[in-house]
Design a protein around this nucleic acid. Structure first.
Lengths: 223, 223
DNA sequence: TATACTATGATAGTAATACTATTATATTTG
DNA sequence: CAAATATAATAGTATTACTATCATAGTATA
């Protein structure tokens, strides 16, 4: 799979950035080190000034790529969802049995990302952790309706819709395929968070993965 | 019910505040107007200075009640979960049939808060909206483990645990009662958010309430 | 009734944040 | 080689998130 993904470019809404970070060396360093830094100190403490110092560049140069750190977060999380969508399509495309296909899809979506894949400057393991800890902040804002109209959440919504369609294929009479799909995707992030920080209110642990729980939940609901 | 609740005081961890806002007129105005203001302009734009201006008081006086706006958010959301816990216990206490009890519990937890109840200075309708839009931000921080140890999320975790126990009473063999309980509570907030802002990825709407969806989901999973 | 204590308010000040603007310099391209 | 472009350096602004100090009004107490 690695070499196939090598040349894949996740297509991100170009209103999210001012200058495409994939188009230059500095841009790639911004992406690479913003992931490391946000994971390390958290999104609230992260600033363009600190990032500039880290990559031996200047605050003002980073502002030429992204309007502000909120847009950078939208970029990173869009990239993540786009990457996950690719994993999903790639892994399920050849499966014809709808139950098997859905099961595999849930596994992909709820898994803990374990190893680095082929994008040299993007660490998906850390990016997954950032999504768990920060994704909600990208849409829980007063600007969400406007940003949604601009298409900033398109990749995420497309992923939910893909999952919804797989659910529908398994049970055409099930009444809440969209809600179930959005519950799986958001709920998986939440269970991963609970596992790390509020272990008493989840059954997920070293031994029980969110995948196991969600597969059980979904297949009991269908048919 | 109203007069019964009248004298109820939600018991909040006293490390969350410096001075109990329930103990003075200024304190109550801080709570009342912070709810109005956070709902109006969002938590990010909300500042103690603006709040001071609104209530004809001073920034420095508000700092005598809360260390910072994060702690104020913890206070407001703890109050909300405490209030909801009371609603839950009150409404389900007399029900002996476990299925009925659980069904009623899910209804309480996933409902849209519709009318003002008896707390004169606290608007639960707006507070519910704040919880939907801002609650995640209170725990998606780098300080979460420390604050959890201090007991800042106790009421929330207790509510999840109560729901978990009700699930367990319905199906003692079900393997994921905690995860299911936390999924319902977090998922309900999420579905309410989607209904308002991302209607295409939910089945919840004017006609279909999150309650309907979650009751279906839960009872199909049990027994 | 004097005084002491408490709550609140007013003012000032600080470091950091989140930018914008301008100018300088290095690199690429035509 | 000139021109265009990218990046870096520097400076400056308004706002935020506080802390500290002092003044004052009201209440409790001796």
């Amino acid at each position: 799979m690695k070499h196939l993904l090598q040349d894949l470019k996740v297509n991100i809404n170009d209103k999210i950035y001012i200058k495409d970070p994939e188009s230059s060396d500095l841009g790639k360093r911004i992406i690479e080190h913003s992931i490391l830094m946000i994971q390390e100190i958290g999104f609230e403490s992260f600033t363009f000034k600190k990032l500039g110092e880290k990559i031996g560049s200047n605050e003002s140069s980073i502002y030429r790529y992204f309007e502000n750190k909120h847009k950078l977060l939208l970029y990173l999380t869009s990239w993540y969802w786009g990457w996950l969508e690719y994993q999903l399509v790639f892994a399920t495309n050849s499966i014809s049995n709808p139950e098997e296909k859905l099961k595999r899809a849930i596994e992909i979506i709820t898994q803990t990302i374990k190893e680095d894949s082929s994008f040299s400057h993007i660490n998906e393991v850390l990016l997954n952790k950032i999504v768990i800890n920060e994704y909600s902040k990208s849409y829980l804002t007063k600007e969400v309706d406007h940003e949604n109209k601009e298409g900033y959440f398109l990749i995420y919504k497309r992923l939910v819709t893909r999952l919804k369609e797989m659910i529908h294929e398994v049970d055409k009479k099930y009444k809440y395929p969209s809600s179930l799909a959005s519950t799986i995707i958001e709920g998986a992030l939440h269970q991963h968070f609970l596992k790390e920080h509020f272990a008493t209110i989840t059954d997920c642990s070293e031994d029980v993965s969110p995948s196991t729980y969600f597969i059980d939940l979904v297949f009991k609901s269908l048919k």
